[in-house]
Design a protein around this nucleic acid. Structure first.
Lengths: 268, 268
DNA sequence: CCTTGCATCTCACGTTACGTTAGATGATAG
DNA sequence: CTATCATCTAACGTAACGTGAGATGCAAGG
């Protein structure tokens, strides 16, 4: 009894892959259909269909053709196959996590765009940039911040994050607008106060003074200076703020003035 | 005041990308750092860092460099950017779904391997193959099966699916062993009964007779023949069962005999 | 002054899994 | 006998770089 056999195109339509793909798999040593000696034409039979099924299956699991070749040779699968599957699983999980982070970022971005009617792309991208390094930032912050404050930040929902980002967008826009004004202008004072109040709320503190106590260590202690500096340096590398040198300098001066006045007020 | 500037390697280490990547982005028109006219050496400044940040951000969101190029030109992001994000979101979700299916398949496969100590790869791969087309199969089955039966199948948990697969693995192994035996051998009868009992349980039926009533339509009605045939044909295309022609023929005969005896027994 | 080392430059090929022509050959139908 | 069709091989194109290879320029050391 003759076994049923197919030409390339028949086999291709039947299995749903392209002719070129069949050629390619053969080229790579993954399949060996019969060849008509004179014409060179290929004929595919049931065994070839089984082979192709195996290949497609492993491709579906995310394996590369080279890997697949190793495993479809042996009829009996050894234990190594299980390990291979586990490794593949790990890779896929990584990919999945990256995708999930990207999806969350997109969600937050769309939200930002929805709130503002026209967006400065520099500001937007800087926020996006920070979203990406968020995880890393939290890792760095963990050993240095008070447990409860850190947890509060870490566990904040997507909604809270979106609120923060929108606030930052507004804040930075304002900074760019008022940069250069005298630092004791009431408008400036109000702006800074807004930021600090937001921070106090975000971190779950009672008052502005507590801001200094969000760290595990006393930041005024001489011996901790090295650690603090290290932390700030790493943080600075990750956090990208879209201000010019001038704007940055101005902002620092404004903060300086703000603290001084606050201290004086307290002393009175 | 001179703006701080970096060489390629400085800029590369600073930003964490490779020198080659910087060259490549320039080649593709994504960046234009200053060039020393005589030596051709590049110098990167803060603006270039911003540019690179934008590129990295969009890459993180899964965009291709070509797409990125279009969007980093304009300073003001238009509304089209939001749509673009939405499209990207859709793509990412598709990718994610594929990965999730692959992960589930791996989980189920590892489970199968754990149960058996040595596995025939043909059998294993055929089961994997079916896992892949599972969704499609359910789609095809939906219009033709009774709502409650279909839901029961569709909602079955991963654990249930794994049980089914393990059963099928055993069943097929047994079929291959006893294929060729006389169809009225008690061992054969037992085997078939096992399968049918499993099916009855799986589908939530009361007895074997109900098996004929899992479809919405009466399969014995002449006018439904076309529909049934269509369904069976599509199903056959998707379901891949690793039996030889002989084994398949034998199995069909065995089932024929089984039904006949069952009918006779009923009549008595 | 010459040599060495180093950073940088510009090609240009390798990678993955095919898609896509282009030109050659063989069999079949009219 | 010719037009058509299926198939063949060969070879380039894709995306985002990695990885040399060979050329150039500059500073330091002998």
């Amino acid at each position: 009894m003759e076994e049923e056999s197919f030409t390339v195109s028949q086999f291709a339509t039947y299995t749903g892959v392209s002719v070129r793909t069949l050629h390619y798999y053969e080229e790579k040593g993954l399949m060996q259909p019969n060849r008509n000696q004179t014409t060179g034409h290929r004929t595919y039979k049931k065994d070839d269909a089984i082979r192709l099924h195996q290949i497609m299956t492993m491709k579906f699991l995310g394996f590369q053709l080279g890997e697949i070749k190793k495993y479809i040779q042996s009829d009996q699968l050894d234990l190594r196959f299980k390990d291979t599957l586990r490794m593949q699983e790990a890779k896929l999980k990584e990919d999945k996590e990256r995708i999930e982070m990207a999806l969350e970022t997109i969600e937050r971005t769309v939200h930002l765009i929805d709130q503002e009617q026209e967006i400065d792309s520099q500001l937007l991208f800087s926020l996006l940039s920070n979203m990406q390094s968020e995880k890393r930032q939290m890792e760095i912050a963990k050993p240095i911040m008070k447990e409860e404050v850190w947890s509060r930040l870490f566990d904040s929902s997507v909604t809270e994050k979106m609120r923060w980002e929108q606030f930052m967008l507004q804040f930075l826009k304002e900074v760019k607008r008022v940069a250069g004004m005298p630092v004791d202008d009431p408008e400036v004072t109000t702006l800074l106060k807004q930021l600090l109040n937001y921070l106090v709320e975000l971190l779950g503190l009672d008052s502005l003074e507590d801001l200094e106590h969000i760290f595990q260590i006393d930041i005024y202690q001489q011996e901790n200076e090295e650690q603090i500096n290290q932390f700030l340096k790493e943080m600075e590398k990750l956090t990208y703020i879209p201000l010019t040198k001038q704007e940055e300098a101005w902002l620092e001066a404004a903060f300086g003035h703000f603290y001084e006045s606050a201290k004086k007020e307290n002393e009175q």
